[in-house]
């Protein structure tokens, strides 16, 4: 399995701060995986995301040690414009990334920067617009559409560049439940149909957990836990101690397990549907 991204003894400290934002990070992300990065506010998740596409150190002043490899190449050796074609980054506040007058202009901005031909741009629009379901919005100003639509526009504007790795920094932090679900539906399609590497920094785990192959806990600048999703959430007590608020369904079954009402050998269900199935199985067994 090829490696999409690798951190080697990586540390980063912003200028004018005394504490490093990231400390000695060692991490490997396989190509095609969906990865969730979680941790409390200020833990260094965004710094980790920015380090993946070169915004750190290119746009920020600070001290960097160690290395970050994207598809085998060290980030600082790749020109920023080229790096963006390998690692797409979607920000938490979609409005803060809109600089164009219409949704269409916003979506094509990245493609134009890549120097694609008009025919290629048209081809990519035909792919990305239905994928993100933004057809009716194309002529509207991007800042005048709804929150969920804004985030799908932001996603489309990065997806159009077809980066093999997508990093999403809290993409649903400003959305209602419906908006969140629709963003994750797009990510699900990307995973199933295009085998993209997707790295999502998220607080809200309901939609992320069923999709993620690998989870990472970042706490006070350190990567404390890296594991596949199921074993990751088996350590729910440890996660909650580090300010992670798991989805209700996970916490409910964890409490049942702690109280001895749920078999210790059974994995914790990661979605409401899986939880309902487990409960049915549990009741059947008890009969």
């Amino acid at each position: 399995m090829s490696i999409a991204m690798r951190f080697e003894d990586y540390s980063w400290r912003y200028s004018r701060t005394s504490e490093p934002a990231l400390k000695n990070v060692n991490l490997e992300i396989a190509a095609g995986a969906v990865v969730g990065i979680i941790g409390p506010n200020g833990s260094g998740k965004t710094s980790l995301a920015y380090s993946m596409n070169g915004l750190i150190p290119n746009q920020y002043n600070g001290i960097r040690t160690g290395a970050v490899y994207v598809l085998g190449k060290e980030v600082t050796t790749i020109p920023q414009a080229q790096l963006c074609q390998q690692v797409g980054l979607v920000f938490s506040d979609p409005e803060a990334q809109f600089t164009a007058m219409t949704v269409e202009d916003e979506v094509i901005f990245g493609m134009e920067n890549m120097g694609l031909t008009i025919a290629q741009i048209k081809q990519r629009l035909d792919w990305v617009v239905p994928l993100t379901e933004i057809e009716p919005l194309m002529d509207k100003p991007p800042y005048e559409v709804s929150g969920g639509q804004k985030q799908r526009v932001a996603l489309a504007s990065v997806l159009g560049m077809r980066p093999p790795i997508m990093v999403l920094d809290e993409p649903t932090s400003m959305l209602d439940p419906m908006g969140r679900q629709r963003v994750f539906e797009v990510l699900g399609k990307l995973k199933r149909e295009y085998q993209s590497t997707i790295i999502v920094v998220e607080h809200s785990l309901e939609n992320l957990v069923p999709l993620a192959d690998l989870m990472i806990l970042v706490y006070h600048g350190e990567v404390l836990l890296v594991a596949e999703t199921e074993p990751f959430f088996e350590q729910l007590g440890y996660l909650m101690k580090h300010d992670v608020f798991p989805p209700g369904v996970l916490e409910f079954f964890y409490q049942l397990k702690v109280a001895g009402h749920y078999p210790a050998a059974w994995p914790l269900p990661q979605s409401v549907a899986a939880g309902a199935a487990r409960l049915r199985a549990l009741f059947e067994e008890k009969k």
């Binding site: 920015y50 746009q59 920000f91 809109f98 920067n113 990065v158």
Partner: peptide
């Protein structure tokens, strides 16, 4: 505050 966010967004989409 926005100047940083906008600049990041522009750089992240490959504009030099």
């Amino acid at each position: 505050r926005r100047s940083d966010e906008f600049a990041n967004a522009i750089v992240a989409r490959g504009y030099s």
